[in-house]
Nucleic acid binder design. Structure first.
Length: 489
RNA sequence: CGGGGUGUAGCUCAGCCCGGUUAGAGUGCUACGUUCGGGACGUAGAGGCCGGUGGUUCGAAUCCACUCACCCCGACCA
């Protein structure tokens, strides 16, 4: 290969960066911390969007769009929210440029905004300010809205997809008449995310609740799905928040209940972002490049003809046509690459590197034998198959690849799930990575101590975990259940 | 913001310490020919304000000062 990829074992971070760039997923823009998502990367994101959007619709949500700019004063209305986001907001102060002989253009000092605008880091404030006008009665509830949008958080250090200054995401914002209903909504959307992660990304996740220190700024409870990457670090792949009445109170969103009483509404918000691209890459890809689960691959099957001349190519075109038709009839996405500007070897390497789940080669030998050569990306295995019934075989193969990727990722996670009872053992083993199930006394002080001493944080308190009480590994004080510690992205 | 590093062809980099013809390599790109079952080979070609500004010098990619940008480590990160 001319484009050498750093081996994961050599330098995992470098491997990731190389892969994102060389597989044409994204590149750095001239604006620090921002990225250009290239067609191959964006096509994967579109597949994710389509799947998630359908799941949101199926659970009763509708899409809408709220503005990019938020009046600065809105952010200040919810105390912990402003505290959480103030340090990373981009602020618009002027609305006009003017020509300048020396510098080309300069900000027109005359055009200062009366009230400065912030570029949304998230939309709770503007949405709740809007919902105040929409919600008057229990008959207006629940209000179940999602938006697909970009947000900006001025991060100090960024990494392609994992943490960028601007990123794409969806944010659901719902309003409910009762606490129980809002809590149920937050849990329901967490389940949607977990289902999406496992069935589409083929990425096993652990559902849990965040501790107070990791909670969303403005939430009562933050639920999350946590995944384990190949290097043993945890990645938060999605969050769902029960916001209580915090935003309703901050923005005076009241409704009249059935008893003609005024009440603040109960809220949730939930989101996943282009960070999922990073999760996808770090869960399945290998030293040969990207590996994509068939359900998210923009093209599932690449077909490469092998021909010595134009005449032979025409023969192969005719030979593979029924196969193309049969595959497409099954809803399988296929690219027949008979571009004669590239050679077969080049194409093989290209499709492998970019993660196409299945590659089929057809050449003169196959035409004689009535066969094609089928290669699967996940295991790199190749086999010659009879052309008869090929569409069914490929369909099964795609499902097998999807299943295999999930199984491999699950096995990896299970092998890196450690139960520890003493802080000494924890400190000894934390360097090797993985999820550590340990007892914790529930105090922020202990959590902070562990973070300072080991760089590991509590990823979550698992929802479906072992609930046997025990004693905190650090202080020995009583603990209700084991929590998950890990070093995280 | 602190510490370290890098800016030379589309990309990866050599050259700089020790100033001196027309600034190099690999890869990529263009044309032609032979090739085509795992990133082919040959021949010919195109491609550079050596990050920017100023200085030293007969002469600067090379030395000096300033400046800008990016990368890595730390601080920060719902």
């Amino acid at each position: 290969m001319s484009d050498q990829l750093t081996k994961r074992e050599t330098d995992y971070a470098q491997w990731y960066n190389d892969l994102v760039l060389k597989a044409d997923l994204a590149e750095h823009s001239d604006v620090r911390g921002c990225m250009v998502i290239k067609p191959h990367g964006y096509a994967i994101w579109e597949k994710m969007q389509a799947a998630l959007d359908a799941m949101f619709k199926a659970t009763g949500h509708v899409n809408a769009y709220f503005p990019l700019f938020i009046p600065k004063s809105y952010l200040a209305k919810e105390a912990s929210h402003v505290e959480g986001f103030a340090k990373e907001c981009a602020v618009v102060t002027h609305y006009r440029l003017k020509h300048d002989a020396e510098q080309g253009v300069v900000v027109d000092p005359e055009a200062r905004l009366e009230e400065e605008l912030i570029v949304r880091p998230t939309s709770e404030t503007i949405i709740w300010n809007t919902y105040r006008g929409w919600i008057k009665s229990y008959r207006d509830l629940p209000l179940l809205i999602n938006q697909w949008a970009n947000v900006v958080r001025w991060e100090m250090r960024t990494r392609l997809f994992l943490r960028t200054a601007e990123f794409l995401w969806q944010e659901g914002h719902t309003a409910h008449a009762t606490r129980a209903e809002a809590e149920e909504e937050a849990r329901k959307m967490l389940d949607v995310y977990a289902k999406f992660a496992e069935e589409w990304l083929a990425m096993p996740v652990i559902k849990g609740v965040k501790t107070a220190s990791e909670r969303f700024a403005g939430a009562v409870d933050t639920y999350c799905i946590e995944a384990l990457m190949q290097d043993g670090k945890a990645l938060q792949a999605g969050t769902s928040h029960f916001l209580g009445q915090n935003f309703a109170k901050a923005f005076d969103v009241l409704f009249t209940n059935k008893d003609n009483q005024q009440e603040h509404v109960w809220a949730t918000s939930w989101g996943v972002s282009t960070r999922l691209m990073g999760a996808l890459i770090m869960t399945h890809s290998d030293d040969h490049g990207l590996v994509l689960p068939p359900k998210l691959a923009p093209v599932q099957v690449a077909i490469v003809p092998i021909a010595k001349n134009g005449e032979q190519l025409e023969a192969i075109n005719a030979y593979v046509q029924p196969m193309l038709d049969a595959l497409r009839a099954k809803g399988i996405t296929v690219k027949y690459d008979n571009d004669d500007k590239r050679k077969p070897g080049w194409k093989f390497a290209e499709y492998e590197f970019k993660g196409y789940p299945v590659r089929i080669a057809a050449g003169p030998r196959d035409m004689e034998n009535g066969t094609v050569e089928v290669a699967r990306r996940d295991t790199m295995e190749k086999q010659v198959m009879q052309l008869a019934g090929i569409a069914e075989k490929v369909e099964h193969l795609l499902q097998a690849i999807q299943d295999n990727l999930y199984r491999k990722a699950l096995t990896m996670r299970e092998e890196n799930m450690h139960v520890v009872d003493t802080y000494e053992e924890f400190k000894d083993r934390i360097d090797q990575g993985g999820f550590f199930l340990a007892h914790w006394d529930g105090t922020p002080e202990t959590e902070e101590k562990v973070k300072t001493e080991t760089k590991a944080t509590i990823r979550c308190i698992p929802l479906n975990g072992d609930t046997k009480p025990g004693n905190c590994m650090v202080t020995g004080k009583p603990s209700a259940q084991r929590v998950i510690f890990a070093r995280a992205y």
